[in-house]
Design a protein around this nucleic acid. Sequence first.
DNA 1: CTGTTAGCGCTTTCAC
DNA 2: GTGAAAGCGCTAACAG
Lengths: 333, 333
Amino acid sequence: MFPNGRVTIGDVARTAGVSVATVSKVINQRHGVAAATSERVLEVVGQLGYESSLVARSLRSLRTNVIGILVAEFEPYSTELLKGTSAAVEGTGYELLAYSGSGLTGENAGWERRYLARLGGTLIDGAILVTPTVVDVDHDIPIVAVDPHLGPSALPTIDSDSLGGAIAATEYLLRLGHRRIGFLGGRPDLDSARLREQGFRSAMAAAGVPVHPELMRVGGYRPGAAELPARELLTLAERPTAIFAGNDLTAIQTMEVARSLGLRIPEDLSVIGFDNVPESALANPPLTTIQQPIQQMGAEAVRMLIDLINGTERAPHLRLPTSLVERSSCRAL
Amino acid sequence: MFPNGRVTIGDVARTAGVSVATVSKVINQRHGVAAATSERVLEVVGQLGYESSLVARSLRSLRTNVIGILVAEFEPYSTELLKGTSAAVEGTGYELLAYSGSGLTGENAGWERRYLARLGGTLIDGAILVTPTVVDVDHDIPIVAVDPHLGPSALPTIDSDSLGGAIAATEYLLRLGHRRIGFLGGRPDLDSARLREQGFRSAMAAAGVPVHPELMRVGGYRPGAAELPARELLTLAERPTAIFAGNDLTAIQTMEVARSLGLRIPEDLSVIGFDNVPESALANPPLTTIQQPIQQMGAEAVRMLIDLINGTERAPHLRLPTSLVERSSCRAL
DNA sequence: CTGTTAGCGCTTTCAC
DNA sequence: GTGAAAGCGCTAACAG
C-alpha cells in the first residue's frame, strides 16, 4: 500500500489531512486536539494499521515502556529468569526486550557495558543485567543486577542465598557419609561462585573434615569449561566419592564425564549441583541440587526495576532463599 | 564524563578532532580514510568506551545485524526455542533480540503484526515469529515462522511432525489397552493443534475405536485455559481412562486437576503430553510425552532466516521429526 | 582523504 | 487547536 511497505506517521498525517505533529499528539494522548480531529486520526490509524516505530520514538523521547534484559546467552539459567520476568510484567504496560550477543562470553567480558551502550538511553527505560561481569556501569538508566559480579554492589541487586545453599549441599553430602568431596567452582568473577566455595569450606571446617587442595577445581559455569577439570578430578589416584558442582550445567557435565570413565552414578560417585534449572530433572540420573527460585528472582527484578524507574524508594538488595532438592544423583556411603 | 552520561559519535569526533562523518566511516570500516586518522579515531573510541547506538544507526541504515525473535510470552516452549537460536547464532556475527509484550495474548491476536510494525524495517534485519496467530504479514523484512497458524503458509516455516507424533501418542495409549481416551486440544488457530487432533482421530479410527464427542475438548495451550475442560472431562459420569493433551503445559495442568479430584496418576488416569519441554520431566509424576526437537527448530529457524537475509535459495519449509518419550504418567490397563 | 549536508520517523517547543 | 521547524544519533550522498 505504501512505497516501502511500512506505514509511517507521515502516511497517517497525509491520509487524515492533518500535520505529523497532530498525529503524534493524538497517538500520545496529549491534550489540545479537537475531539473530531482526534477521532478522524484514530480512524486512519486503525485503517492503515499504523504502529509507531519503537526506534524512531525512542530516539526522541525518554520513555519507551520497554524493559531490557541483557544476557550473555540464552541458556537454562537466563531463560528461566525470563519466564519470571514475563509473568511479572503482565498488566504493567511494559514490554520486554531480551538482548543477547553472539554468545562469545569468554572472550567478551564487559558485554553488558557494550549492550547497555547500544541500547541504553534510548531503546529501553531500564535494564536487568543477568550475571554481569563488571560492576561499575554508567547509571544512564535504572539498572538491576541479578547475581552480579561482586555481590551487593553499587547496583541494586537480586540474588539468592548462595552461602546458605552451599552449606546445605555440603552438609547433605557429609550426612551421607562422604568425606572426600571434590568441589568444582563456578565463574570466579561472580560473587555467587565465591560464596558457594566459601559455604563449602565453612561446612567442611565445621565438620572437622579437611579440604584437599587437589580436590578444588574451577568449572566456569559453562558445560564446555567443566569437562577438563571434572576429568582431572575423577582420574585422581585417590578419587573423590562425591562432587559438589558450582551449578547444574557443570554437575550434568561432570556426570557425563564420569559415565565416560565407566563410573556409575550414584553408585561410584555422588554429584550435587546448584540452581535447579529444569534440565537438572532431565539429567540421567536426575540431579540432586540446591534450588534457587530463579523465576521468582526474575519477577522481583522486574518489580524492583519498575520501582526504580518510577522513583519509588525501596531496599536496593533482595536475597531469596535456597533449598535442597533431593533427586537421585547422591547416595549414602 | 559527558553531559548525559552517554558518549555519542559527536563526542568521539570532537575529541579526535575530526568530523562525525569520518568517525562513522572508521567505525563501519569504509575505505577512504587515512590510516593515521583511522588509528586516532579508534584510539579515542576505545578511550571513551564508545559504542554506536543501535537505535540511531538502525534508523538510517538497512543492516543492523540483529535478528528479532517475536514471542507472545516467555514460557517453556519459546524459551526452549531461544536456547536453540542462541547456540545457532554463535559465530555468525548476528545478535539476538527477543521481544515479548505484556503477555495478554488472548485478547491480543495479531501481536506479531504489532511487534513487527514496531521493530521491523529498522531495528532488526529479519524476524522469527513463534507460533504466530496470523499468517499474512507484510514482507517488510525476511521472516521465518515457527509452528504457525496454518501450516506451511506463505511464510517460510519450521515445524515438527505433529501428525505423526499424535498418531504415535494415540497408538501408545491404545497399545496400553486404553479405549476411552480423552483429547484436550491446543490453540485451535494453530495448524499444529489441528494436526494433533487429526492424528488422534486417525489412529483411533485405524484401531477401530470410536471417538466420543464428549471426550473431545479444547485446552488452549496455556495452563489457565486447560483447567475447566480438564475438570469437565474428569467429572464425566463415564470418565476416560487416559487423556492425550495437546501440549505439556495442558497435560501438567490436567494432572493437577486430577490430583485435586483425588485421582492418582497413572493408577487412576494415564496422561500423555506433547512437546517435551523440560518442565515435563519435573512434573509429578514425570510426564510421558511426544518430543519435538524444539532447540533444533530454533537453530534451524536462525539458519533459514540468515539464508533468507543473504538471499540464498533454499526450501521454504522444514519439518522435523517427533518421537515418544516414555516416563511415568501412563500405565497399561 | 575529509567535511558538509540531508534526512531516517518521531516528539516537542513555539508560533500562528 | 493546529502546524512548522528543530533535532535525537547516525549514515550516505556529494563536494571539496
